[in-house]
Amino acid sequence: MPGQRKRKSQRRHAAERMAARTSGPGRWEVVFETQSAAEWREGLRRLRTEAADIDWELTRIDTLCGRLQQPTTYRLSRFVPATGR
């Protein structure tokens, strides 16, 4: 498929940048979580326009796939580096 190698390379480089920035001590903090896909899209749109303090390079989007027992959950987390003492 045309362009697939380029997309794979871009994803790999993005993953390497994320690993380099989050390799130190710290934790993932949940910024936004919902079980509604429409609410998820609206929440992301709102955060992109309003939240200037979010470093999008240090964010992670998780989609926790649901089954009959648990519905699908969408979660946006950001990496918070540990403060040195």
Rank of each mutant, 00 (worst) to 15 (best):
M1N: 09
M1W: 12
M1R: 12
P2E: 10
P2T: 08
P2Y: 06
G3W: 15
Q4D: 13
Q4F: 10
R5L: 06
K6F: 07
K6S: 04
K6T: 07
R7M: 11
R7Q: 10
K8D: 14
K8W: 15
S9W: 13
S9D: 14
S9C: 06
Q10L: 13
Q10K: 12
Q10P: 02
R11N: 11
R11G: 03
R11W: 10
R12C: 02
A14C: 08
A14R: 14
A15Q: 12
R17W: 10
R17T: 11
M18Y: 15
M18H: 12
M18V: 14
A19N: 09
A20L: 14
S23Y: 12
G24H: 01
P25S: 15
P25F: 08
P25R: 15
G26W: 00
R27G: 00
W28C: 00
E29P: 01
E29H: 11
E29F: 02
V31F: 03
F32H: 06
F32A: 06
F32V: 04
E33K: 12
E33I: 08
T34A: 04
T34W: 08
Q35Y: 08
Q35N: 13
Q35K: 12
S36I: 00
S36Q: 00
A37R: 11
A37L: 11
A38M: 13
A38G: 05
A38P: 03
E39C: 05
W40D: 01
W40M: 04
W40P: 00
W40V: 01
R41D: 12
R41E: 11
R41H: 13
E42V: 00
E42W: 02
G43D: 07
L44M: 09
L44W: 07
R45K: 15
R46M: 07
L47T: 01
L47E: 08
L47D: 03
R48N: 09
T49I: 09
E50V: 01
A51W: 09
A51V: 02
A52V: 09
D53H: 15
D53Q: 14
D53K: 12
D53G: 04
D55V: 03
D55Q: 03
D55N: 05
W56A: 07
L58C: 01
I61L: 09
D62I: 07
T63P: 01
L64K: 11
C65K: 14
G66K: 07
R67T: 05
R67Y: 08
R67A: 05
Q70E: 10
Q70F: 14
Q70S: 08
Q70M: 10
P71N: 08
P71T: 04
T73S: 06
T73W: 09
R75F: 04
L76W: 01
L76P: 02
S77N: 10
S77G: 03
R78M: 07
F79L: 02
V80H: 03
P81Q: 03
A82M: 07
A82N: 04
A82W: 06
T83D: 13
T83R: 11
G84F: 10
R85T: 15
R85V: 08
R85L: 08
